[in-house]
Design a protein around this nucleic acid. Sequence first.
DNA 1: CGGTATCCAACACGATACTG
DNA 2: CAGTATCGTGTTGGATACCG
Lengths: 122, 122
Amino acid sequence: MEVSVNDPKCPSRLVLEHVTSRWGVLVLAALLERSYRFSELRRTIGGVSEKMLAQTLQTLERDGFVHREARPVIPPRVDYSLTALGEEAARKVWELARWTERRVPAVEAARAAYDARRAPLG
Amino acid sequence: MEVSVNDPKCPSRLVLEHVTSRWGVLVLAALLERSYRFSELRRTIGGVSEKMLAQTLQTLERDGFVHREARPVIPPRVDYSLTALGEEAARKVWELARWTERRVPAVEAARAAYDARRAPLG
DNA sequence: CGGTATCCAACACGATACTG
DNA sequence: CAGTATCGTGTTGGATACCG
């Protein structure tokens, strides 16, 4: 099967990098559950800085995955949610995240075996 | 739904970062089709350097996703293939890659709309 | 061929300070 | 609250050279 993503020039690779980016994955997964405000999202996703969250949200908004709704109130209130397109992406990403969590024990066992094969001959 | 991946300390986040890494995604997708030799894989995945391919393969091997088989022949021959665990991961990643390719037109339309909303008021 | 080692540039990222 | 701007650093990642 040919896959155009193997071409470094192909735009699909960039899109894929956006949705699989470190914070993109977590933002999509979070928004799958419900919409979030900026700070709320920041608290939900452990370890993300303001800068990276803003940047990630902008990228995902521009790509049409995330809808940004700014309400003209004081104090400012901005809600982020998934578009239909974003929800499709988020479901796939979410599946991957769930699968990963379930398989962590298998991965850790594999790592132990790998390390055991190498370390002993130090 | 709670998802442990939102904890920055949780090991699942690291595993997820390995499989969704820039080159990890493409390596898994390529190996889903068949096994590859090192240089062959390098040629297949456009733009990857030797260093990054080696590093990515080592990480995926240690996590138990990729099987490395070095044959003691001259010239050296090493084949990379997916383990059962790796194949599960690769299928999910592959679905995401395929979905992305199909949706590129929608993403580009969204970008054009986003940019149009902003640029005019420069 | 299939790597590893080294060096260096780019940028991803976080901390902080500031603005509407 | 929801960002933007600036700065500094550490990691990512490519180029090159070399080894088994």
